[in-house]
Design a protein around this nucleic acid. Structure first.
Lengths: 124, 124, 124, 124
DNA sequence: GTGGTCTAGACCACT
DNA sequence: GTGGTCTAGACCACC
C-alpha cells in the first residue's frame, strides 16, 4: 500500500508521512481505522523500525493519527488532514505563481498550463 | 544584493545559485557583466569562499555564467537561464496540480486561487 | 583497486570519476553493488574525504551511481555509463583525426596506426 | 591570424603555442620567417604581454622558433615541429584506442568512425 | 555507521 | 589579483 523510493532526496520518514496523509485525504483510510504497527510496517517495507516510529510521531503531531496505549495507532478526523494538506498545496501554488511572475510568465500562459495539467491527469 | 538564510534547510550554495539566476532572469545582471569575485562575495556575505566557489561551479554547469581564468566570472546568455527556470517552474506547477487533484480540489477552485495570487502580486 | 597519480595535471577527483566509470564499464563493478564509503576510500587512498565526496557527487550527476542516505553509494545502470564513455571516446577520436589532417597525415597511414595499436593491445 | 578562446580550460599560452606550431606544420609560416613581436601580438590579441612571452619561451624550448637578440623571434626547421606534433597525435590515438578496447568497441566499428571523420572533414 | 554541507586555511596556475 | 584544487576538521540529517 505504501511505496518507498530510497533513492529520493526526501527522507523516508517524510515519504511515509505524506503517503499516509494522502491515503487519509483520499478516503482510503477512514476515521478510527487502525494503522499497521510500527514493527509490521517496518518489516513490510524492510526498513528500520526507528524510521516508522519517527513518521508516526510526526503524523501524531500533525493531528492525523492518535495513539492508544497498548493497542496501536488510529486515524483521527479526516478534515484536519485535508485542511492541512490543502493549505500546503496552495502555499506551494503561491510560491510558484510568484516565481512565474518574476520570470515574466503572464497569467494567461500560466492558466493554460494549469488547464493542461488538470486534463491530462484525468487519463491516468 | 544577495541575502542568505543560514537557517534554511536549503544549502547556502543552492540559495546563491537560485539568487544569481533570478537576478539574471530579471535582467538585473546582463550578459557579459562581471560577477563579484569568489573572495569578495565571501567577505560580503561573511561565508566561506569554498561555498561561493561551489555555487559558481554549479552556475557554470547550468550555463548561466562562464569563468575566465585570472579574470573572473561573467554572465552568459540570458535565454539559457530563463528557459531553464521556466521549465523548473512548470515542473513544480505540475506537481502541485497532481497533489491538488488527489485532494479533491477541482479545476475551478484552483484557477480562482491562481487568479488571486496573480493579482495580489501586482501590488507588491 | 584505484590508483591515484597526485602529480598529474588532472585533478584527483576527476581521476577517481574516470576510474570508477572504467570499472563499471568493464563490468568489474556491477549494478546495485555498493561502493566503498567516502571515508573508507579516503583512508585507502590517503586523500581527503572531501575529494572523494566531490568525485562521488559528479558520478551521481553522471548517473553512474546513486546515493542512499545513511547507507552508502551504489552502482546504477551500466548502459548509462558505457554510452557516455563511448561518446567521449569518439569525440576524442574526432579531434585526433582533425589534427592528423592538419598535419598532412593521410587516411591510410592513420588506419595502419589504428590497426597496430588495436593488435598490440591484444598481448597486454 | 591567431584566434584565442578565453573561455577554454586550456591556458591561453598553450593555445598560442599550438596555434603557432600548427601554422608552421601547415606551411603557412616557413623557416626563417619572423614572428610578430611580443608586444605587437599582445596588442593584436589584447592579452597580457607576459602570456605571449611565456608562449614564445615554450616554442623556443620545443625548438620551433629561435630568438635573435635585438631582432626578434624566427621560425626554425619545419620538420622538428611536425615530427613533434605527429608524435603527440599518435600518442593521443593510442590512448583513444586503448580506451575503446576497454569499452568493447571492436576494430571494425572504430575504423568506420575513422573513415567517417576523415571524409567529413574534407568538406570543411 | 552513512552521505551532505560548511568552515578555515593553504597551494597552484593563469592573467 | 583571479579561479581551481586540496586538506583538515567539524556539524548535521538520516538509517
Amino acid at each position: 500500500m505504501i511505496v518507498i523510493d530510497s533513492q529520493s532526496r526526501q527522507p523516508i520518514y517524510e515519504q511515509i508521512v505524506e503517503h499516509v496523509e494522502s491515503l487519509i485525504a483520499a478516503g482510503v483510510m477512514s476515521q478510527g481505522e487502525q494503522l499497521p504497527s510500527v514493527r509490521a510496517l517496518a518489516v513490510e517495507l524492510s526498513i528500520n523500525p526507528n524510521t516508522i516510529q519517527k513518521a508516526y510521531a510526526i503524523l501524531e503531531e500533525h493531528g492525523a493519527i492518535y495513539p492508544v496505549k497498548g493497542k496501536g495507532n488510529f486515524v483521527s478526523e479526516k478534515d484536519k488532514v485535508t485542511d492541512r494538506m490543502k493549505g500546503q498545496c496552495f502555499g506551494r501554488l503561491k510560491e510558484t505563481v510568484d516565481q512565474a511572475k518574476k520570470l515574466g510568465i503572464n497569467e494567461e500562459e500560466f492558466s493554460i498550463k494549469v488547464r493542461t495539467y488538470y486534463r491530462e491527469g484525468k487519463h491516468d
